[in-house]
Design a protein around this nucleic acid. Structure first.
Lengths: 356, 356
DNA sequence: CTGAAAGCGCTTACAG
DNA sequence: CTGAAAGCGCTTACAG
């Protein structure tokens, strides 16, 4: 060889290699040659390639990503913003999305957004020159809309998962309207005509979609929303969802004409309500039906097991990844797209025929 | 001014700024000056600083992180490896750790480890020159030990959360032995002398620690482990934990002398067992006590609410962050440390006096 | 295959 | 304050 030899391995332990220069000296090849092997370029002797690969095994050398990308190589990195309130479905989504992106050779950076902290996170992602940014969850609309505008300034594609109604956002979201429509249809089929709503009051897009779905199912059977539904949400504060559902159900049992079917914002509230009813001596599903939303694992826990609406996470993720990758590969100026995911009703023992 | 002017804002929309050179031209200052403002160096006119800051607001310019760190600036980034099986406590930990690290101005990259995929993930982290790597969860011991050796080759500090017994690893973990000791002590105090173990059979470190805790609590009262405990784990396959707990509990009700107290691997199995007992007509806690482990939110769901062992996640995270930061700040050659976290017994209505 | 060179976007002395 | 220069670790023509 020649040159100032690198600190050769002091018996056993390989030397610390910090750059292609160190590494080239270690293998005994030129920097250029090493680089060409590393980048899989043609015209190299198999022997040379083998020597480099062996040296990588020995030293664990990884080229500095910062230098790589500075040279213009794509960062192949996608930033994911998670809602602060980490629900099990949200966690499943981010894990599935990361797996899916990895299959397409993208790394993903996950950051949990603190309230008001989105600006800082997006700037960090931009400084890392991510290829795209994904938002998973429900956020303050104006805040996210502002972030999306910033991303557009930097020509960075973005995608919103779960939250409908953000202007200019390419969005993948569950069709909650259809989910509630199907669920109420299922209960109407069992002869129920009086519905207790648990935690579904409000004016956010997610809630108004659900209410619209309930209303449309009722209307299809000639029932008026006002007459057929009842909500006591305002009677209790929402802290722990199980406790909230339990308290709501108990309040319902005190009513003169208690609804025979209950639909809830999520599985936790539904299961709380189920237990609240049982504790008051109401048998489920014989005397009342209860249904949740999201179809989490906990639906299998209570006796009876909970009927719920499945979010179809795999389909959601695949749609999101598809949209994301076509955006990155740059069909320019595509109008923001909104893709709705069809939910799936999973009927279990907590719903059944209305009492006579 | 002078030079080839950048594409000046075509009315309204600011130009796309990709480098300090673009940006300096936009502000009308020298690159050097801009850089000094960006890095908060002294000796600059307030007017200059203000102009730069205003321009940042207008353009959303962020210096290229790759160039920054190539110049030698710390990446201020920590890689977090999550276990594939995402349990709620693990999710709480990673979110809390990220928040804690952010307060110390570290960004964190989260990757979920697929089985056998740890090598690829660690190489990615190394190529990003992270300041440290954290493992959260339970992994294959030899695989992680190998990864830790690779990290050491690159002088990269590391920390293992939750999993005890990995040689050479600085570790923060819950003292599960003490947790089980306290829990069984609580039940002994209620007069129970016969214990059903749910899902606690096995030889992994986590399981043998728990068994040791149970044994030590029994011994302190002069009871022999073999005589006082019973496990039927082998009778059922562990799929969904709720179903597993339910099935185990039902098998126990078929025994001649059914235990009066049940301790479980986790809250899910305990709640499944609770429901299994109730479905067989066993009243809890009057005729049997049931306790979980982890103290998740779902402990509040069943009737009665579940007694459990809290993991003290906040304390765990603070200990982990502390160890991590001192390692990064480089007290060199510190022996690997192991810090145990004291669990907390949370007694609820699912445990009570043994039947007469 | 080698070796010298340019350049990615930044920071940091250094002379004006 | 400005401007020219060096250098971080890489890749990519280019001449040998």
């Amino acid at each position: 060889m020649s040159k100032s030899a690198p600190k050769k391995a002091p018996a056993g332990r390989p030397p610390v290699i910090r750059s292609t220069a160190d590494f080239a000296r270690y293998v005994g090849l030129a920097r250029t040659t090493v680089s060409r092997v590393l980048n899989g370029q043609p015209g190299l002797r198999p022997k040379t390639v083998a020597a480099v690969q062996r040296a990588i095994e020995e030293t664990g050398f990884t080229p500095n990503a910062y230098a790589l990308h500075l040279k213009g190589k794509r960062t192949a990195t996608i930033g994911i913003c998670m809602e602060n309130l980490l629900t099990p479905p949200a966690v499943l989504k981010v894990a599935a999305l990361q797996r899916c992106l990895r299959e397409h050779h993208y790394a993903s950076l996950i950051e949990v957004l603190e309230p008001g902290g989105s600006r800082q996170v997006i700037r960090h992602f931009l400084s890392l020159r991510v290829d795209a940014v994904v938002f998973i969850g429900h956020f303050i609309e104006e805040e996210i809309a502002q972030r999306l505008r910033e991303l557009e300034t930097h020509d960075t594609p973005h995608l919103v998962m779960d939250q409908l109604g953000i202007p200019g956002a390419t969005t993948v979201a569950l069709d909650r309207r259809k989910g509630m429509h199907d669920l109420v249809g299922h209960l109407l089929g069992f002869g129920h005509t009086s519905f207790g709503l648990l935690g579904i009051t409000g004016t956010t897009r997610s809630l108004s979609d659900r209410l619209a779905g309930i209303a449309s199912a009722l209307e299809a059977r000639g029932l008026a929303f006002e007459a057929a539904t009842r909500s006591l949400d305002s009677l209790h504060a929402r802290g722990n969802d199980f406790e909230y559902g339990r308290a709501l159900a108990r309040s319902f049992t005190g009513l003169d004409r208690r609804p025979t079917a209950f639909v809830a914002l999520n599985d936790e509230i539904a299961i709380g309500a189920l237990h609240g009813l049982q504790e008051e001596g109401v048998r489920v599903p014989k005397e009342a039906s209860v249904a949740g939303f999201n179809n989490q694992d906990i639906c299998l826990m209570p006796t009876p097991r909970l009927t719920s609406i499945d979010q179809q996470i795999q389909a959601t993720i695949e749609a999101a990844a598809g949209l994301l990758l076509t955006q990155i590969d740059g069909a320019p100026e595509r109008r923001p797209q909104v893709r709705m995911i069809e939910p799936l009703l999973v009927a279990r023992e907590s719903t059944g025929p209305a009492p006579a």
